[in-house]
Nucleic acid binder design. Structure first.
Length: 269
DNA sequence: CGAAACTCCTGAGCGC
DNA sequence: TGCGCTCAGGAGTTTC
C-alpha cells in the first residue's frame, strides 16, 4: 500500500535506470487500470529520452520531450527492474523497456494508473493538490489557514490531498500519535502549538519512513524485487490492544470514515 | 458549497 | 481441501 515514502523510494530506485535513456518500447499488457491507459501514449513515447523522474504527491512523473507519463501505484502497485525480455509475472500490466533493462509495472488490484500529460499542460489529477509535506510550503501557518472553520476530524483533514499530499491512512495515525493529538479532534480547533507539533510530526514520520526505504507491508516490495529492508517501527498503526510505547496503556482502534484508525487515548487528547 | 458514502479490484486470512 | 465471507486501501465520483 504505497504511501508517499514508498512512492519516493520507488522513484529514487528506478531513476538511475531510466534517466537520459531512450525508451525502446512501451508495452501495455492490460489497458484497463483505474482509468484506461491512453492508446496513443505508446506512439508518444517510443524513442523518447527520459528527461527526469520525479514525484508529486503519490504520482511518479516520467518526463519526456513531448510530455510526461503520470504513474500511480494505487494500493497494490510496485515497479520491478528486470532484464529486457524477462518473463512477465501475473499482473505485470505495463512494461517499459530500455536497451539494458525493463521496468515491470505490477498492480494486482489495478487501482493505479498510467496516464499521459502533454507538454505544456497540467493534468487534471495534478491540479488542486496541497503542498508537499517535505517542502517549505508545508508550514503550521498553512495548516492553520487551511483548517480554519473546518469541523472535520483532523485525521480526515490530514488525508485530504487539498490540505497536504501524501499522508495516507498509516502515516495519518502515526503522525497524530507523535503529536499527541486525538484523531477525532476537529481540525479547526487545533491550537497554534498543536499545529506546530503536528506539522513537525508529519514531516518527521515521512522522513523516517523514506530513510527506512518504505514500510514493508502487505505487497510492497522495493523496486529491485527484494523485500524492503525493514518496516518503520509503527507506534500505533496495526497495534490494536498492544501496549503504548509511551505510556503502557492499550492502543485503541476504531473506524473513521470507513478507515482503520489507531491511537492511544491516554497520550492523544 | 462541503462532507459523507460509494466505487473500482484482487488476494490474504479466517471460520467452518 | 475448499468454500464463502470480510477486510485492506487511494482517491475520484456520486449523492445528500
Amino acid at each position: 500500500m504505497p504511501e508517499l515514502p514508498e512512492v519516493e523510494t520507488t522513484c529514487r530506485a528506478i531513476r538511475p535506470y531510466m534517466l537520459g535513456k531512450p525508451i525502446a518500447a512501451l508495452l501495455c499488457r492490460r489497458y484497463d487500470l483505474r482509468w484506461p491507459i491512453p492508446k496513443d501514449m505508446t506512439h508518444n513515447v517510443a524513442d523518447s529520452v527520459v528527461k527526469s523522474v520525479q514525484r508529486r504527491s503519490k504520482y511518479i512523473l516520467i518526463e519526456l520531450s513531448s510530455g510526461t507519463m503520470l504513474v500511480h501505484l494505487g494500493m497494490s502497485g510496485t515497479i520491478r527492474i528486470e532484464k529486457p525480455g524477462a518473463a512477465y509475472r501475473k499482473h505485470d500490466h505495463v512494461v517499459l523497456t530500455f536497451a539494458d533493462c525493463a521496468l515491470h509495472y505490477h498492480d494486482p488490484r489495478r487501482f493505479g494508473c498510467w496516464l499521459w500529460q502533454p507538454r505544456g499542460t497540467v493534468h487534471k489529477l495534478l491540479q488542486n493538490l496541497g503542498p508537499e509535506p517535505l517542502s517549505a510550503h508545508w508550514t503550521a501557518r498553512h495548516m492553520r489557514e487551511a483548517a480554519r472553520q473546518k469541523n472535520m476530524p483532523v485525521k480526515q483533514w490530514l488525508m485530504d490531498a487539498k490540505n497536504v499530499v501524501g499522508v495516507g491512512n498509516i502515516y495519518a495515525s502515526e503522525s497524530l500519535f507523535i503529536a499527541g493529538i486525538h484523531p477525532q479532534t476537529p481540525a479547526g480547533q487545533l491550537s497554534w502549538p498543536r499545529c506546530l507539533r503536528l506539522n513537525r510530526a508529519v514531516r518527521c514520520v515521512l522522513q523516517k519512513a523514506i530513510q527506512a526505504g518504505g514500510t514493508t507491508l502487505k505487497d510492497f516490495r522495493q523496486s529491485d524485487g527484494e523485500p524492503g529492508y525493514f518496516a518503520v517501527d509503527l507506534k500505533v498503526y496495526g497495534r490494536q490492544d498492544k501496549t503504548c510505547h509511551r505510556c503502557g496503556s492499550l492502543i485503541k482502534h476504531c473506524a473513521m470514515a470507513g478507515r482503520a484508525t489507531y491511537y492511544c487515548d491516554t497520550c492523544q487528547r
